[in-house]
Amino acid sequence: MKALIQYISTILQGLLTLVKGMAVTGHYFFRPKLITTQQYPENRQTLKMFDRFRGEVIMPHDENNHHKCTGCGICEMNCPNGSIEIITKMIETPEGKKKKVIDKHIYHLGMCTLCNLCVKACPTGAIVMGQKFEHAVWDRTQLTKVLNQPGSELMKDVKE
């Protein structure tokens, strides 16, 4: 008899714990807003990433197609996995002096681990982290980018 009572009471206790759990799920069943996080593909228009979000390395240009990169190569040295290649060229200034300027700032997004060391090391603030995060492409050669725009020049007030 005692065993029977214990048997039934364990079943009832088990049912009680199940009901307790179901109370939580039932609570959220009628309040779906409390349980969802983000409706991602639908909210693409309004989705704004945080300012510091590290999506890719970009080089901002002003309206005159000027950037701040002097081609010093410090970002290339600080990159842990060789994602950045700096190619410089020699030009002759109007005063007749020879000067080293940036030819191509090549950035391999496919290799980049987005560690922020290059941005932190850049002495002129020429490269920053962009907020774009949808990087899927059909061909991996598209992940190799040239950050300085064609025909762009160094800003005038940037110290070298």
């Binding site: 088990g14 714990t17 199940l18 307790k20 759990g21 109370a23 939580v24 799920t25």
Partner: peptide, 8 residues
């Protein structure tokens, strides 16, 4: 409530 007390 959901998991710790659950009989299963």
């Amino acid at each position: 409530q959901l998991l710790t007390g659950n009989v299963i």
